[in-house]
Write a protein that binds this DNA or RNA. Structure first.
Lengths: 221, 221, 221, 221
DNA sequence: AATGAATGAGGGTTCATTCAT
DNA sequence: AATGAATGAACCCTCATTCAT
């Protein structure tokens, strides 16, 4: 299950381990909440709405979750676990720096496609004031940023990457990926284009950016 | 604050035209709402809270605004007007492509510093479901993206910019800027660093990226 | 209003100062709550029921009271004020010990007749676990007991009352009065009898008890 | 604890016959409910709380009792049976009137000490609205009152007791005993004093009261 | 223009109770 | 006999909004 082959197919390569939740009812509730939280927002989503969408009684929800916040927390916890695991797998593969960047982007788009509700939820949770999950999501974000910064530092040491502020650059890269993928979540023509060409174009131009700057620097010197 | 000179100072150059609102009371309400919407979210902010923060009676709010949504709409409308105006000013200046990119980034950071409440509100509104303003904010975002894409297209035509998908690249640039500025809104050391060095570093490396890629391409060919 | 004449009429002599509450709506709510708390108990009384009985919207209740407990607290506070005031009046009159005992009993029955709901509520609050008012009511009860104990001590000093433990005897007297008045709250024949003859019979026999024991003691010696 | 001798010791003489309930589990439930009903009140006690305290599943409770009310009813029924039995024993002993009064008081205090939860529950049930048990408890109370009234009537016939309204006087006596024992349930110094000296002091002074009044009456005539 | 009392629908949550296992 | 997941009515309370003043 862990071993993965880096093939040509651009998407759907990081969708392993869907992590079945503990009960089917619990799963229905979580799925419904994901959808509604993503669509309407946490505060604007009512328990009754979750119950209706999940085709479950309100009481049943409270049988499985302490309160509304715990549903969100559960969703976030699970998704973060999945993402961290995917990152760990990626880290363990010993790919080249360029390949790693490429894979991080691919991973991002895969997760987006696989469960766009949670992906949108994560976009929002970074700015939302939900006391529970905001921190967790931001921490995950920091983690990914640190991972990328690490790659950049390694590239700097190896002379593969132009001089830059690693962490700031890492956030910059994350921003690029998110902006494109967020736009790709839309439903118009542009969104489709971004979803199809985004990963490759991003990978190419980001590496260009990191790598080529260095060439020029050399030339400058 | 009103008088402005386009000098070297990287920030605080696009803060002209704070646009006095119609009444003092109306202004108090709007400011309170900005703060609360940014902090707590639209759905989680109550009219009572707005009234309390604005030191105004609930009745007074309804005297000036039809309902809660209209307050948000008013805030968004006003802010969009300001931003569009700033863009128009920028467009009209006939700057070089590199300078235009640089100025767009500076504008973004200026707006952030001047009124971080509204800036945060805008971050969120792009994902939030408030039926009224979401569209408007997304349209503004598209506008800015199109503007940047226009610059890129011009650069492609002039041979100043390497080959790329203009709109996708525009979104990429917007994403970079947002990611860094969003991180700069934090309150730790890194945030301070990003706020100080972000605009310049971004402008420099984005231009490097757009421009130098082309050099290499030439070399490739 | 304060000056009172101790006439023959057995009841309704301590009903002065009904203490109009601040608003008529507030009053309706309080009256309804008194009735329901007395009939059904605090925990078993719903806000909807109070609203229905008071012919008031639920929102209106919360406009005047922070929560259900505050309604109870308000009722208890007001009633305790009335009772303390009545006690003060009684204390200030400089009556003979026998007369004071008699008047305390009369007062008790008057309050019972005037607003039996609150009276029943008070019976219950002494044992109920409502955190708010239980203490207050018990304190009032202690106050009355202390007052009676004071009378007894004075009687002991003057040699008008037989030797006894003053505070224990005071509680005993209170218990006698309450037991009879509680029974008088029923709706059968016995209740009517108790209501009519209770005050006098109690006053007579209590005094007999306090006073005559002393005679015998003398005889014993 | 089971073996009992009618000795001098003022307390703990009526604690025979704890009446083992039908099942161990049923017993645990009942004990838990007694405690919680006494502490929190019937309405405020949830089935979950009972199940938790009794270390029993909710289902198990419903296996043994039809519903929450039936638990209360069972507790009340059992306790009333015990008290009635104790009264029967007392009645059957052919004691002197004075001794009977003394024993009734002792019985009251014994029951209080043995199971103060149920005792407090009984205090409350007289005012509480639980449709089932309120009536039963009041009936028991009436029974005891009637028993005492019977003693008084007998005393009147024998000329041992002064002229009085028998039933009203019986309630008066019950009230005295309850007031003192209720106060003895507290946890302060006074409570300890009342618990220790209450029964004797009450028995002595009540008899004094009933008996000596008569002497004086004779003197009056 | 400005107030804040009043409304009642709807918020999250707990409840006693049922029932398949 | 015993479990605890599931139900949905009802709980207390807050909400955006109205309207008489």
């Amino acid at each position: 299950m862990q071993e993965r082959t880096v093939e040509q197919k651009p998407n759907a390569r990081y969708t392993f381990l869907a992590m079945t939740r503990h009960g089917q009812l619990e799963d229905r509730i979580t799925k419904a909440a994901e959808k509604l939280f993503a669509q309407e927002g946490f505060a604007a989503t009512g328990m009754r709405a979750i119950a209706r969408v999940a085709r479950v009684s309100i009481g049943a929800i409270y049988h499985h979750f302490k309160n509304k916040e715990e549903i969100l927390e559960s969703i976030v916890r699970e998704e973060i676990r999945r993402r961290q695991r995917a990152l760990d797998v990626l880290r363990a593969q010993g790919l080249s720096l360029q390949k790693q960047i490429q894979e991080i982007i691919a991973l991002h788009f895969d997760l987006l496609c696989e469960n766009s509700d949670v992906a949108r939820l994560f976009f929002r949770e970074r700015f939302d004031p939900s006391p529970v999950s905001k921190r967790r999501v931001q921490d995950l974000y920091s983690d990914v940023a640190e991972y990328i910064a690490g790659i950049i530092r390694e590239g700097l040491a190896k002379g593969e990457i132009r001089s830059c502020q690693p962490l700031l650059t890492a956030y910059t890269i994350l921003g690029m990926v998110e902006a494109v993928s967020l736009r790709a979540l839309g439903e118009d023509e542009t969104a489709g284009l971004f979803m199809k060409e985004g990963p490759e174009e991003l990978a190419r131009s980001i590496w260009l950016w990191l790598h080529l700057g260095q060439e020029e620097r050399k030339a400058d010197a």
